[in-house]
Amino acid sequence: MSGDSDGEDPVELGLQLLERLEHAELTLAETMDRIETVTTDPALVRKILDTADRRGIIEREDGVVRPNRSSFLSFEAEVITKEGEFTCRRCGVSISTGYFMNLEAGEHGPFGSSCIRKVTGRE
Rank of each mutant, 00 (worst) to 15 (best):
E22C: 10
D62N: 14
D41A: 12
L44G: 02
F111H: 05
T87D: 15
E85P: 12
G92Q: 03
G56S: 12
G56T: 13
D50W: 08
F72H: 07
F111W: 11
R34V: 11
S96D: 05
S2G: 15
G109C: 03
M32W: 01
S94L: 08
V45F: 07
F111V: 06
R60C: 04
K47V: 07
R55N: 08
E85N: 14
V93Y: 03
N102D: 13
S2E: 07
R122G: 03
V64K: 06
V45E: 07
E12W: 14
L44Y: 10
T37N: 02
R69K: 15
E76L: 07
T40D: 12
V79L: 04
M101L: 14
S94M: 05
C88R: 01
P10N: 08
R69P: 10
G112E: 03
P10W: 04
C88Y: 12
D4G: 15
E123M: 01
F100P: 01
Q16T: 05
D33V: 09
E107I: 00
S96V: 14
F111G: 00
T40S: 13
R122T: 09
V38F: 06
D33P: 02
L73D: 01
E30K: 07
G112T: 00
V119H: 01
R122F: 06
E61L: 09
M32E: 12
E61H: 13
D50L: 10
V119E: 09
K118R: 09
N102L: 14
R89C: 00
I116V: 06
L49M: 09
I58L: 05
T40K: 07
V93D: 15
L28P: 00
S5T: 09
T81Q: 13
I58N: 03
S94P: 14
F86D: 04
S113F: 05
K82G: 03
T31H: 12
V38N: 02
L17F: 06
T37Q: 03
E123S: 12
C91E: 11
A43W: 10
T31E: 06
G109V: 03
S2W: 12
M101F: 07
R122P: 04
I80F: 10
C88I: 09
E30V: 08
T120P: 00
R46P: 02
G7V: 12
T97E: 11
L21N: 03
L28R: 13
S71H: 14
A29R: 11
D33H: 09
A29Y: 11
C115N: 02
I35Y: 01
E78H: 08
R90T: 00
L28W: 06
P110R: 01
H23E: 05
C115Q: 05
V64H: 02
Q16N: 07
L28K: 12
A77V: 04
G14D: 08
T27I: 07
E78D: 14
A43K: 15
T97I: 10
R122Q: 06
E36C: 10
G121T: 04
E30A: 07
K118E: 05
